[in-house]
Amino acid sequence: MEGGTEPAPAPGAGDVILSIERLSLAFGGVQALAGVDLTVRRGSIAAIIGPNGAGKTSLLNCIAGFYRPQHGRIVFEGRDVTRVPAARRPALGLARTFQNIALFEGMTVLDNIKLGAHAHLETGVFGALAYGAGARAEEEALRDEVEREIIDFLEIEHLRNRSVGSLSYGLQKRVELARALAMRPRLLLLDEPIAGMNEEETEDMARFILDIQEERGVTVVLIEHDMGVVMDLCDRVTVLSFGERIADGTPAEVQADPDVVTAYLGTARVG
């Protein structure tokens, strides 16, 4: 499945990491996605925007494996993952955050982050019960990685042992990002990472997202309503409306597209 060696930071930047072809998804009679295409280049930040109910989160859920599309293909790093069960996708290098924060309330911040690495760890039940040398080494290495690469990076040292329920909304979002980073993603899916944040939190989050892309070479696909942030951060923007892709291009191109303006202003669409 996976090669023995991890790719170096942003190998072959510019090749296609994710390609979605003619993706369709319906719930009963409601067509959530109707033949959507999407191509994401390695090392880029792509945005999916669109009015409420346009199918943005549905698309993300298909990529993450929570929804099974009826038609179309999802190809990640050259491999067709359309039918790969959700629980197997993190091991392939896919990670996500949720629109409505989905942290594990019964765990500390540190354990939530550690949980993200689950798919990459190996301790089995006997190793766990005995906490032998293997399990100990694995946990210590994980703790080290989490501290160095994630907790320091996201500036949440002071929150380690807090229970997640006691954190503010903005900090919870940051912990969710931390957990997604612990999943060691090559493609990171962020569902409204800055929605509901104040100005300072927004700036912090935007900086983290940029650093994740620039310093770690992680490709980012995000859904966002804040157009300012989308225009600043993203290399490409895809616009969905009523489950269809109505525009795709650089932020400037999309902004100038009359279809997009119509979709957002809610004028009745013709045809």
């Binding site: 993450a64 091991a91 999943m183």
Partner: peptide, 24 residues
């Protein structure tokens, strides 16, 4: 058990089974 991935997975399933699944 709860110092390792095995126990963390148990708690995750209790707290939110669907997002646990999406965490692998």
């Amino acid at each position: 058990l709860f110092r390792t991935r095995v126990g963390r997975a148990f708690i995750a399933v209790r707290d939110r089974d669907i997002s646990a699944e999406l965490m692998g």
